[in-house]
Amino acid sequence: MTKVKRSFLPHPFLTAILIVVWCLLSGGISLGTVVFGAILGILIPQATAAYWPDAPRAVGLFKVTVYVLIVVWDIIVANVVVAWVVLTKRNRDMKSVWVAIPLELRTPEAIAILAGTITLTPGTVTADMSDEGHCLLIHALDADSAEAVRDDIKNRYERRLKEIFE
């Protein structure tokens, strides 16, 4: 039974998201959109199941919400800070640094979200990962010290992602 369920609906949560996305795209909830969304929601996870063999683990919705709110707040605050730096600081006064962050996270999804978060928050861009996936390379636009950026990211984002995913 579980095997049949697994091959028919490899990712039930993805199916639900695809139905919601299809309804949003077609701009309304009607029987037609829900049925067509369900067809897509069943076919797409089956077609892509080979690339995504493991079922995602359940994550705490409350902690995810807190994380998203923190990231959105940081994006707004850092946008203002970076806009000020871009407009007022001369190029040679900016101290751009590379920051290498040793990772404690091991889940690929968590590392991907951490890398995305770092790029979305202004002032830092994820540039690369070490060949065996234990470090992230980050470029900071204007930072006093690489250590401060590293500790900030580790305390603010990585610790929370570790609680969510691991």
Partner: peptide
């Protein structure tokens, strides 16, 4: 970029 603290090299 600096050397990674762990591992051999950056993937790129």
């Amino acid at each position: 970029p600096p050397e990674p603290p762990k591992d051999q090299n950056w993937a790129t």
